[in-house]
Design a protein around this nucleic acid. Sequence first.
DNA 1: AGATAACGAAACGATCCGTTTCGGTCGGTG
DNA 2: CACCGACCGAAACGGATCGTTTCGTTATCT
Lengths: 182, 182
Amino acid sequence: MLATAREVLAERGFAGFSVDEVARRAGAGKPTIYRWWPSRADLLLEVYLTERSARVSEPETGSLSGDLAALARATLAAWRGTPAGAALRGLIAEAQRGDAALLALWGRFLPAWLQPVRSVLGDAVRRGEVDPADIELVVELYSGFLWRRLLTGQTDDDRTAIDRMARLIASGRGRKEPRAPA
Amino acid sequence: MLATAREVLAERGFAGFSVDEVARRAGAGKPTIYRWWPSRADLLLEVYLTERSARVSEPETGSLSGDLAALARATLAAWRGTPAGAALRGLIAEAQRGDAALLALWGRFLPAWLQPVRSVLGDAVRRGEVDPADIELVVELYSGFLWRRLLTGQTDDDRTAIDRMARLIASGRGRKEPRAPA
DNA sequence: AGATAACGAAACGATCCGTTTCGGTCGGTG
DNA sequence: CACCGACCGAAACGGATCGTTTCGTTATCT
């Protein structure tokens, strides 16, 4: 079932992803699909989560900028090479309808999605590389960078741009008084 | 006509924005709407452009971080207080369908949208505040920050976050070798 | 005044979501 | 071995929306 959804997303992208299409290909009835997933968005979400958790693992390069770059590259690779990218594009697009159920789903999904970045940032804080007060800023800039690339279809592995992004974000100059180097 | 579209967007957001609804309220026929705008997205786009060009003007604070912060706050204010925010949310959502015409529209719109940031960055380059090679990075981080906020509904005037974002982005530490101050 | 173009209203074809209905197939039971 | 009930695929339905077509009316221009 999920396999069929993945297949449709991979072949025709979010544009060609409809519940009817998935049901047809799976040789299943729509009621059966709606038995397990309350809405199309839930189906997209599950496709994304399974796909992504299987692919992206926590990097350990020793520096925040290295970790951020590795994480970003792995995420983009997963978006590029699996239906995860199409699924997330669909989720973001659908969330703009403002449906209450969608927003609830979103509220549960966003923190889960941000978990790897927060983990990497936690390490950096422990190393004294980042002021805890800067965490939210870094999370926002990092996710904004990746989402914008996803939504505009730029999921290619642009190493130099990603490295620059990671270095700038990790440089931590957002505070009024930069900390003296340890 | 545009006034009615603005009104619908303002009252019911992108969720309640349909061509039929606009036609009904305007006392006009749908064919008349489609005579001027080839698709719903074009209508959204024009609402956005008129709304935004009337509101956001180029800041001149003398520093890149100041300009970026002012620009970001003005943009968020326009999104918050006018139908422009709802219109852009709709445009971004609709673009995810991958329709060819949509992508063409997007290709013309994105550069126009980025023009104010690029202008501010041009000033900073002339002042020697920014390496021209960093322009794309700053543009990406700035737009990613704002879009992410728009798409998640966080259009409030979060001064401290915006200032931090502007300072970090403007600090220009993304290069391998930071330029020596002039 | 008469012809022509534009326009509002309504209906249409197509697509899609999410729900309901129907008929057949499989399990377990007396 | 015969029967009953739950599940499921298929199909149809109701509702919404986009973009198009048709039609009668109105307003404009000659």
